[in-house]
């Protein structure tokens, strides 16, 4: 067995420390209308291409639950995505769905939103898609404060192409193109996007879908560029290459790395104390920034226009 590697003073690569988290029963099941999000699925596109345990699927389902509460059908909602496992999820929702090129969904979404401001436009992107090849577009969309909701699925790796290094990969972590461990420092996407001018910035986890749902709902309500980074897990590559266990183990590792902003994450899971072996560096979760300034469409005088 490979020796655990050291990340920020803690270790990554063990497998015994993953358990010990007591979870409240999944709240979604008790709510009225639970399961009704399935009507928004595009069954003809199934079977889907996600691996078992992939965090993207968990987040996608949570997104659908929020949408099902707000929309009867998604005729006036467009989903725009780039290229990657994360980006592929838009194909499975029965809306106007646009699967664009690698890194560029925000550019298509910008054009679509300006052309048709009355449409609700949601962008789904990956950490490679949105922060590496598409990083320039991300900061400019944030700067413009165009009224888009951008959800970045951060699995800290390139899943679709077989587990290569991403600009979000934790320092020291193994990927197929960082066989000696990552020498680089990962992006803090939320800080980057806030600095660029986004008016709603949040971070959530696939581990706590209820919190993600609340945040996603707020992001949809927000007028202006809203950015939600959601930590997901690539079981197939990130998990396996770094010996982090299966999908459930990875979720628990997220739990350990969470530093809640209490106002947003009222319901804390009870963590049984374990030695300080956080798999991931501790990160702030919740709504990290919220402000209001004119959106690009407002500044251009396009709002309210019905063509």
């Amino acid at each position: 067995m490979q020796a655990p590697m050291v990340v920020d003073g803690t270790s990554i690569g063990g497998d015994e420390q993953q358990r010990g988290v007591t979870l409240a029963p999944c709240p979604g099941d008790e709510r009225p209308g639970a399961g009704s999000e399935k009507r928004l699925l595009r069954y003809a596109m199934m079977p889907h291409m996600l691996c078992p345990g992939c965090g993207h699927g968990i987040v996608f389902e949570a997104m659908l639950r929020v949408l099902a509460e707000r929309y009867e059908t998604l005729d006036t909602v467009a989903f725009v995505a780039g290229i990657g496992c994360s980006s592929r999820v838009v194909g499975y929702v029965d809306a106007c769905t646009l699967h664009t090129t690698h890194g560029r969904p925000l550019t298509f979404a910008t054009g679509l939103k300006l052309a048709r401001p009355e449409l609700d436009v949601v962008v789904v992107t990956g950490d490679g898609d949105g922060l590496s090849i598409g990083g320039n577009h991300l900061i400019h969309a944030a700067r413009r404060n165009i009224d888009l909701t951008c959800v970045l699925f951060n699995n800290e790796i390139y899943g679709m192409t077989g587990g290569q290094l991403a600009p979000t990969t934790i320092t020291g972590a193994y990927t197929s193109t960082s066989p000696a461990g990552n020498h680089e420092r990962p992006f803090d996407a939320a800080k980057l996007v806030e600095a660029a001018g986004a008016t709603f910035v949040a971070r959530a986890q696939s581990y706590r879908t209820q919190v993600f749902e609340d945040i996603f709902a707020r992001a949809l309500d927000h007028k202006g560029f809203s950015f939600v980074e959601v930590m997901t897990d690539c079981t197939e590559y990130f998990g396996r290459t770094n010996r982090l266990g299966n999908g459930a183990d990875l979720l628990f590792s997220q739990a350990r790395a969470e530093q809640a902003i209490e106002t947003d994450l009222a319901e804390r899971p009870t963590l049984t104390p374990v030695p300080p072996k956080a798999v991931r560096p501790v990160m702030e979760m919740g709504v990290l920034h919220e402000s209001r300034r004119p959106t690009l469409e407002e500044a251009m005088g396009l709002t309210g226009e019905q063509r």
Partner: peptide, 29 residues
């Protein structure tokens, strides 16, 4: 363009310009 109900936007590069054009076109323009 703006005075005629049109949209003009200077994008961050030509990749983005072409992406925006395609998004605008799918929006019906």
């Amino acid at each position: 363009l703006p005075g005629r109900g049109g949209v003009f936007i200077q994008m961050e590069d030509e990749i983005a310009s072409m992406g925006a054009v395609l998004g605008g076109s799918l929006g019906g323009r």
